[in-house]
Every structure is written in C-alpha cells, then in structure tokens.
C-alpha cells in the first residue's frame, strides 16, 4: 500500500488528524496536570503539589469506595473471562446454527443497547426478584456487562489458531483434555490476558449501571466521584480521577503490547 504517495495525499488531512488527536487527549491531560495544582480554584495554576493525593488517601469514604471497586472488578474479571473463554471455545465446536447465531447476537447486544436502559432494566430485575446481596448485586451486573469485552480478544486470538494444530495433537495421542491443556490454553494465553484486562477496566470504570444497581453502602469509585462532582468539583476529585485514568491507560497499553507480540 502506497504510504503517502503523491496522488493519495490530501492537503489538510494531516493537520486535522493531529488536531483531533490533541482534542482526544487534552481533557485527559488537563485532569492529570491540574491534580497537581496547588490551588483549590482548580483551573488557575498556582504551583506544584501532591497535597490532593494525600487528602484523597486520607478520605475514608474514598478508601472504601476504592476497595469496593477493586473487589468487584477483580471478581467480575475472573467470572466474565472464564465464561467468555468457555463461550469462545464452544463456538468453535459444532453447534446448531440457531444456537450459534443467537449466541453471537447475545454477545454483541450489551454493546448495542444504551447503557442507561441496561442500568434500569437490571435494577428493576433485582428489585422484582428481591435480590439483596449488597456489593454482590453490583458484581452480577458487572459480570454480565464485561463478558463481551473479555470475549473479543479471546475470540480474535482463537481464530488465529490453525485447526491442523489440534489435529496434530490428536494424531500424537493427546486426548481432548490434554490437547486443551498443552496446546489450546498456552496459545490462547495472550488473548485471555488481554480480555481479562479489558474486562477489568470496563468494570472499574463503569458508572451508570453501578449507580442504578448499587445499594447504599456499596459505593464504587465512579459512583463516589459522581456524587462529588454533583456537589462541586474539588481538587481531590482530580487526584482520584488521575489515578483511575493512569491505571486504565497502563492496562490498555499492556493489552495492546501483549497482543502485538507475535508469540506464535
């Protein structure tokens, strides 16, 4: 493919691209930069400080919310990745067309339905069946929502495995279980890791579903941040938000790097 060959080069395209990229990142950078602003009037720069981070760590409610978020994220990640892995492998086997098609549809539906609708639907459902597991309610809702995000890299990875590898394993006396343990699983590991990371981020960052579903006392970090934003933006919010942003960025970049490495 011609790289920026003369006929393909359109003027203004490069500028637009860089401006758009700046547009995408400036708000993120602003939050991070101003979290170090020694001025409680957030948007006027006064000097560098890490005070807000210290204040954030000393905040009990914040700490509790953070722990809740982490507990839910880790559990939801484990469950959703496991379910997604089984589904991905199952889809490669012989399934009746109806089952296969409805599974694919169900897998993409959470990404298509507006989050607010999923939020109120889940909340109503928990209400009517009287589910009252506290943080467990949040965990269930997150698990469901995270499955498609875990599934995508796993599915992408499994598609790259040539079927002849599994035929070779069977030809070499491996039972289906041995074939799975020694060939499928090791080769799928990058996809599984990537899927788990994405599921983790999705759970950690989720707001609207958690807001609707979490009972009082089971607050997560984004819900806490929202309540603070409602009251008025304080610099501690910037500090906490920056931490969340940086965690997400690190995980996404790692996920990319893992997938890029052609370990095969």
């Amino acid at each position: 493919m011609a790289a920026a060959a003369s006929p393909a080069k359109i003027p203004g395209v490069a500028t637009t691209a860089y401006l758009a990229l700046a547009f995408l990142y400036i708000p993120i950078l602003i939050v991070i930069i101003f979290s170090f602003n020694a001025n409680s009037l957030i948007t006027v720069w006064k000097g560098f400080t890490t005070d807000w981070y210290l204040k954030a760590f000393q905040n009990d409610d914040l700490r509790r919310a953070t722990i809740n978020s982490l507990v839910v994220a880790v559990s939801a990640t484990v469950l959703s990745t496991l379910i997604a892995l089984m589904a991905a492998i199952g889809m490669r086997g012989k399934v009746p067309r109806a089952v296969g098609q409805s599974s694919s549809f169900l897998m993409t539906l959470p990404l298509l339905i507006p989050e607010i609708v999923i939020a109120i639907a889940t909340m109503s459902f928990f209400f009517i069946i009287g589910l009252d597991l506290g943080l467990g309610n949040v965990l269930i809702a997150h698990t469901v929502f995270c499955i498609p995000f875990a599934y995508s890299p796993i599915r992408a990875r499994i598609e790259t495995l040539q079927p002849s590898l599994f035929e070779a394993a069977a030809d070499l006396y491996a039972t289906p279980w041995q074939s799975f343990r020694r060939v499928t699983l090791p080769l799928m590991l990058p996809g599984i890791t990537s899927g788990a990371m994405l599921a983790f981020i999705t759970s950690l960052d989720d707001f609207i579903i958690t807001q609707m579903v979490a009972p009082p006392g089971a607050m997560t970090l984004p819900v806490y941040i929202y309540s603070m934003v409602r009251k008025g933006i304080t610099p501690e919010i910037n500090a906490v938000s920056s931490i969340l942003l940086v965690i997400s960025i690190i995980l996404v970049v790692s996920s990319y790097v893992i997938n890029q490495r052609k370990a095969v």
């Binding site: 199952g90 169900l106 698990t143």
Partner: peptide, 23 residues
C-alpha cells in the same frame, strides 16, 4: 479439536444462562 456436539454446548451454557437470566 474433536468436534463433538455435546462439549461445545456445555461450554456455551454458562454464557447463555448468565445472559438469559441477567440480561
């Protein structure tokens, strides 16, 4: 992989169950 019908459906069932009930 030995394409046998039943294992594939068993593997899909947690997904279908969870999505069916909670989504």
């Amino acid at each position: 992989m030995r394409d046998v019908k039943n294992p594939a459906l068993w593997l899909l069932s947690p997904f279908l169950a969870v999505m069916g009930v909670f989504f």
